[in-house]
Amino acid sequence: MQSFSYSKAQTLDQATAAGGRFIGGGTTLVDLMKQGVETPKMLVDITGLPLSSVETQPDGGLMIGAMVRNSDLAHHEAVKAQYAVLSQALLSGASPQLRNMATTGGNLLQRTRCPYFRDPSYSNCNKRNPGSGCAAIGGHNRMMAILGTSEDCIATHPSDMAVAMTVLEATIHVEGPKGKRTFEIADFYKLPGTAPNVENALEPGELITHVTLPAPRKGSKQVYLKLRDRASYEFALASAAVVAETSGGHIRYVRVALGGVGTRPWRAHEAEAALMGKPATAAHFRAAAEAALKDAKPQSENGFKVELAKRCIVRALTTATA
């Protein structure tokens, strides 16, 4: 039993000055505390902060408070109408009970489902104990990542929401000791490299306050497709988020991001480059999928994810350009 203190912050300043771990819905942190993976000394409850609104911006974009619950965001009228990929991604994740609790900020920071990370009886986890090694390599690795892995970590980023936000090119707003900072989502998540314990750009004491989405691209279609073993309540084996706009049968704009296969929400720039200006045909979709997975490095049990991810991309592109 790890003793910890708990306080509920009333203002942003109180929260960031407290010097503790932030707790929102608790759907990741409380789990990991029970497992002994996370051992915070101080919890600062941020659910009382005024960060629970979703507001359309003057530029047509959307500002989402970090405390907006996943369910509320998924069912928000503006999200359903203009950011369908985000609504679909949210609703494909977890269960209704979890979505009712989980917050936008917390979802962005959700940690990997790697079983070796989640079990402290394995001392060799570079995420938990930097420099200790990686128990997943050579272990049960069917769910592990095939893109962005390193010799030190092959853990998959688990979030569906973050994949949708990646394809929507979201901006993440944080506040903390360094004042207000913003990150493009592509810069927010770090590859594991030799320091898999560093998962994102946040510094100690920094709190995600908002996520902003640019105005939806007019005439584009959005799709989130998640492939998994069972029909609900499972993390992705492979998922694809696509925003695409076609005219005259040609692709004029496309963004592709992948989930379930990468060590971070995976932006598939190679696929986008392969598609721009090309006819929206099955052959080009397949070529884009090949490009997206060309650097895939499967483990002993997850080689199938390479082909599955390709098929996922092709189907999502087909749907988004139909």
Binding site: P115, R230, A231, S232, Y233
Partner: peptide
């Protein structure tokens, strides 16, 4: 029960 999969209602 997250990683050991049993059939859910939608299955």
């Amino acid at each position: 029960l997250a990683d050991y999969l049993v059939a859910t209602s939608p299955d």
